[in-house]
Design a protein around this nucleic acid. Structure first.
Lengths: 323, 323
DNA sequence: AAAAGCAATTGAAACGATTCAACAAATTTA
DNA sequence: TAAATTTGTTGAATCGTTTCAATTGCTTTT
């Protein structure tokens, strides 16, 4: 069997409690016996059993990030931001991309969770959230005393994109929406619809396309659209950069030019956006900053601070060659 | 306090053991009492305490992936591959990017671990690995009965890259190495040195540059090199695509052309490589496949199968515009 | 009608740590 | 010198599950 604290204690010739205190740096233990215990632990290659430890302490020193998958370039920077802050406060971060069980979350193997995963139902979140287990959601509206929100101001982003296109003289603007599962995607879409109406743009219903956030889907959707409609908008906004990429590829393939015939604005500012030809005008989401803010908030909540601060990550339009 | 199994049992008017059996689907329990228990659990919003559960069962149904950080586009596809396989076998995956404690690993909160993190010392790995906790390392040579290896055939990749350049008529070939921490980076470098000598290429010592895997470092290094040397190789191999990108940017900025003046071969085939101008010739690493193989191997090991199979992810040269 | 078998339920003993309260020995104080 | 305090050490209780072994009612068999 694996080495336990008892084995260490026996080898060091002390009680288990002494061994425990020694290893945890309790200062009541005499220096000489601490040495003995450390030596024994080392000799046996002892590592504590985390489950036992966490069970007893009812604390894991662990924060969980729950995302829907690792596909796509969006998560990396967000992750970096969260990671940096979390470890600098003595916690560790675990990232899970579960789509059904979410055991790490439901069985309370973390002390707090950050949620960006549409697979997890809000009802479940409500039964899991508690004083001892605060949640921060990045992907939904939800009302619960221990669930905090850190949502992107997608509305403002869309507004900026439209303003930019308007300034460039566009009146007829289309939209490429992502999958309906996504909170950000859908708020971007409805913000678009809202402002279109408010500012009397001439967008036709048929110019609101539906794709699924991938480059390929952006390509296919735009291709089909151009094949079936001889009239097309002078500009498109895509709900993310990957779809914008795909759309641009399709447009070019149909013999049209970006931005002369059709201008395209993306969303997120993924790394690749600046390297493409044409480079993509996009609404930059400060993903790393977002992650940092969320993590800071989580740590404050865990510290007991009253952190119902509503986070406002910033967004800005980055003008490039595609408009 | 939080709801425990005892609370559920009390509400359902049964013993704790009955409640436990009921929730775990033991068929000795009468259907009517199972219903009672489920109903009670539901009413209380009960979720089992994972630490207690895992402690008792000495099993976590959890596999850990330990990487050095979330920066860079390399990990995503690897992650996808691992994730898919792991969840399809009833396990869950946790990803940790720790750089000092690695508690998820050392405190045995996972049943098996996949290591791609140079921050974790081999000595530590040896004290952690055991029958109950198999390890697969992706980033080092290490000898231990419970540590399995799944290393990339970097040697072959370099060979292919050199062959390709040779076919294109290059004799004087430079190299851009990554940071010395990286196993893959260093094996790529030494394979390069080896074949250079074996095939009598005319590479000068000064044309072996040292960067750190980032685009920026590739750019800087190449910039400095071109500034200081009026003679330059007709081709470079970079230890990853990002450095290749940076190098190309520098080369173009110095008024030289890729591939006419200097050809560049990258390594990994990250998504962006095909979209750049010029698109990058690179040694493709089948990252998703690699991830799948590794995960399969881990699950086999956990199942007790004798899986000392040495994995051989494939590599192939993808020719594009940069050569 | 007693014996045997089965179905359903249960108390109690683990799992491996932490930590309280008790204690002994050594030291200080009165 | 007795009492009080300090310094180290320790057994035992606890965290919330799972699971063994025992127990209770019922049927069924002899």
């Amino acid at each position: 069997m694996l080495t336990t604290l008892k084995d260490v204690a026996k080898l060091a010739n002390v009680g288990v409690s002494t061994a425990s205190y020694a290893l945890n740096g309790n200062k009541l233990i005499k220096e000489s016996t601490r040495k003995k215990v450390l030596q024994a632990a080392n000799e046996l290659g002892y590592h504590p059993n985390g489950n036992a430890k966490n069970l007893k302490r009812s604390k894991n020193d662990m924060i969980g990030l729950f995302i829907s998958g690792f596909t796509g370039p969006f998560f990396n920077q967000l992750l970096e931001g969260i990671q940096d802050v979390v470890v600098s406060h003595g916690y560790e971060l675990v990232v899970c991309a579960s789509n059904e069980r979410h055991r790490m979350l439901t069985e309370r193997l973390v002390d707090g969770a950050i949620i960006l995963n549409y697979h997890i139902e809000s009802e479940l979140l409500k039964t899991v959230a508690s004083e001892k287990m605060p949640l921060i959601v990045l992907d939904r509206e939800i009302d619960h005393p221990h669930i905090y929100k850190a949502l992107l101001p997608n509305d403002k982003g869309i507004k900026q994109a439209l303003k930019h296109l308007e300034d460039k003289g566009h009146k007829d603007i289309g939209f490429i929406a992502g999958s309906t599962d996504s909170y950000d995607g859908e708020t971007r879409l409805s913000a678009f619809k809202h402002y279109i109406k408010e500012h009397n743009f001439t967008t036709e219903q048929s110019a609101i396309l539906r794709a699924d956030f991938t480059e390929a889907s952006g390509y296919e959707t735009m291709k089909t659209f151009l094949k079936n409609n001889h009239h097309y908008p002078t500009a498109f906004i895509a709900a993310n950069d990957e779809m914008a990429m795909g759309a641009i590829r399709a447009i070019k393939e149909e013999g049209l030019s970006v931005p002369t015939d059709i201008a395209v604005v993306g969303f997120d500012d993924i790394i690749i956006a600046q390297y493409l030809q044409p480079s993509i005008t996009t609404v930059r989401v400060h993903k790393k900053q977002w992650g940092e803010q969320v993590a800071e908030a989580m740590l404050n909540i865990l510290k007991g601070a009253n952190a119902d601060l509503i986070l406002q990550p910033t967004m800005e339009l980055i003008e490039r060659e595609s408009t």
